[in-house]
Design a protein around this nucleic acid. Structure first.
Lengths: 123, 123
DNA sequence: CAGTATCCAGGAAGATACTG
DNA sequence: CAGTATCTTCCTGGATACTG
């Protein structure tokens, strides 16, 4: 619990375009994961989401706030974001989605490759 | 099984912007639902998806095909779309998502209204 | 019947730079 | 530290009209 978030927390193709299931915008699913073990600060969140710009992170967090999934807590010298009970309840379908993607990963990759093999020429 | 698809099959706000979970593009989730009970033809699908343009429907179907979720079967005088086994397996997380949205519907509506009350003036 | 072809408006999201 | 402000590009998706 509350171990630091690492830069390699997410695979480089996460969120993957191979999975048809998405939670919120591009970053929302990963943000929710980051908050799973407790509140995190803005700059703490930037670490695992490597290439996110502050603008995008702000935007995603505001959207999550408006949907009631994340709460924003302003402290004297920091701001902490945390999952609301509603946001935490979302972990269940989120886990279901991740489990499905893992379970069918090979099929997803195969389908993707088959779809692009059609446009390839020669051997 | 194989009863006709009706125009009122989906609520007017389906897919709802209130639910943060989405499957594929705007129409994909509903298309998958439409194929749940068996293959359907292009024009059959247009009925429950009321305002979808043929272009959008084609585009969504092609995307589902490329991901291996839907198969396209050309017959002499029609084209039939059906769920592949992979597409059918997606019904499980899709149902989980729908169940979550239904279960937390009130909270989602409340959060949405609270978010927009802030910008309202006077009573 | 099952699509294509064009055109277009709005949103998503990155690059870069700046601030209380 | 936790953001804003601008600018720009890409993508989504609708409107409309046409076709083998």
């Amino acid at each position: 619990m509350r171990t630091p978030l690492t830069a390699d927390m997410f695979d480089e193709l996460c969120p993957t375009p191979l999975s048809p299931i998405r939670v919120g915008d591009k970053w929302a699913g990963m943000i929710i994961r980051c908050l799973e073990d407790g509140p995190r600060r803005f700059s703490e969140l930037r670490v695992p989401l490597r290439d996110i710009t502050p603008k995008s992170l702000t935007h995603s967090l505001r959207a999550l706030e408006q949907r009631g999934l994340v709460s924003r807590n302003e402290q004297p010298r920091s701001v902490e974001y945390a999952l609301t009970p509603l946001g935490r309840s979302l972990l269940e379908p989120l886990n279901a989605a991740c489990a499905w993607a893992e379970e069918h990963w090979d099929e997803l990759v195969d389908a993707h490759e088959a779809a692009y093999q059609e446009t390839r020429h020669t051997a």
